[in-house]
């Protein structure tokens, strides 16, 4: 803390994860769009499925990371956990928006309409986007200690809202429409499953790489701020 490091810690990790994520995304894209067996009914759009589901799952991972970071912040009061929480939610929110967009494209291809209120995934991710967009509204209207504390508390409460939203939408669904749309799931051929796992790994690596990059950026920003402060008040 007292010395400004010449190299920001985490740079190397960010680089390694970045390279790994790039390789995995390239491999997964080739696999998904060129190798994996297509679906007779849906054609190219069906291939969005691999990334759509992978991104959906990883965005929940991101919110879980933020929730844990929130708990750790409240325990230790160290700024680094606030950094982790904010970066994770930023990426998770981006991914959730992508889920809604890819889901909407899918809905257009499958059912000929951009929005289907009876599709639980589309609806829940819309709610999730609203929950976590509010996080940034809260952040921007409080300062310093309070900002970090409130953010930590909200990232915990928000993560409690996620399963509640998932479940409430599905409870309603099961009563209103007894037949729930299922995509993929159990009856997936083996070769599809392989590419599904690869794209899942690719998106997860991408999340970690983005998180590392965000954290490095934040650390260097803080180091710079401290340097400026020291120059101003010798």
């Amino acid at each position: 803390m007292t010395d400004t490091p010449a190299r920001i810690p985490g740079e190397r990790a960010a680089l390694i994860w970045g390279v790994l994520a790039t390789i995995l995304v390239v491999v997964a894209s080739i696999g998904v769009f060129l190798v994996a067996p297509g679906d007779a009914d849906q054609g190219i759009v069906q291939r969005i499925f691999y990334f759509h589901v992978a991104i959906a799952i990883v965005s929940l991972v991101a919110f879980a990371v933020a929730c844990v970071a929130g708990i750790l912040f409240l325990r230790t009061r160290r700024e680094r956990w606030d950094d982790v929480g904010e970066a994770a939610i930023r990426i998770g929110l981006l991914f959730s928006v992508l889920v809604v967009i890819t889901g909407s494209i899918w809905a257009k291809a499958s059912w000929g309409t951009w929005w289907v209120w009876s599709d639980p995934r589309l609806v829940t991710y819309l709610i999730v986007v609203l929950i976590y967009a509010a996080y940034f509204v809260l952040r921007s209207s409080a300062e310093d200690d309070r900002r970090m504390r409130y953010s930590a508390i909200y990232s915990i409460a928000g993560f409690a809202s996620v399963p509640l939203s998932f479940y409430s939408v599905r409870v309603a669904e099961s009563f209103v429409h007894p037949v729930v749309f299922t995509r993929g799931g159990a009856n997936m051929p083996g070769s599809m499953l392989v590419w599904f796992v690869v794209s899942q790994a690719a998106i997860l690596a991408l999340f970690i790489a983005l998180l590392e990059v965000e954290l490095v950026g934040r650390r260097s920003e803080r180091a710079l701020r401290q340097l400026v402060l020291r120059l101003e008040n010798p």
Binding site: A134, L138, S165
Partner: peptide, 25 residues
């Protein structure tokens, strides 16, 4: 949470309503 934020009257519904969606459902 909203108590000591700026624009708290605006913050509260933004935080609270998404969490209320399951209750409304």
């Amino acid at each position: 949470l909203a108590l000591f934020t700026r624009a708290r009257d605006l913050i509260l519904p933004v935080l609270f309503l998404p969490a209320l969606v399951p209750v409304v459902i």
